[in-house]
Amino acid sequence: MSSDLKPMLDGIFEVGPPPRLLGAECPICERKFFPKPIVCPHCLEDVKEIKLNTEGTVYSFSILRIPNMLYKYPQPYASGYIDLDGDNIRVYGLFDPEKTEEIAIGQRVTLKVGQIGIGLDGEECLRYYFTPVDGGGK
């Protein structure tokens, strides 16, 4: 991984290793969030940053087979929702572009970070993505 690439947005994840998604927790209602909200929308209080669990289970997914020029993702690519272990939170993310056809509901996945597509400034950037645990092999 080229070290001078930047995340597609600041404050979303730590590159690592190991990579971690940066979420938030409200000190009042203890709800967890991803990404970090401006304030807790339930309590309107400042939230504290937390590192979210790195493993989870695929809740649902899609495979886009037509080009998406918006951020120059690989074609095709899979993305969808992952239920993170223990954090009681469902996050959206890309799936490993090398393992697109292995993604299924219930698949166990783990967090990675790598160069995928371009950022808001049009430059290549780092994105978080989930890859099948144990390397997949469905």
Binding site: I12, S60, F61, S62, Y81
Partner: peptide, 28 residues
């Protein structure tokens, strides 16, 4: 262009476009 509600939306930055949201519903 492919429609999306906001270029800065984290789900959009991570690959969600309108058709994907409904494909994920169909898959589920």
């Amino acid at each position: 262009p492919l429609l999306n509600p906001s270029m800065r939306d984290i789900n959009v930055l991570e690959g969600n476009v309108v058709i994907n949201g409904f494909a994920q519903r169909a898959v589920r």
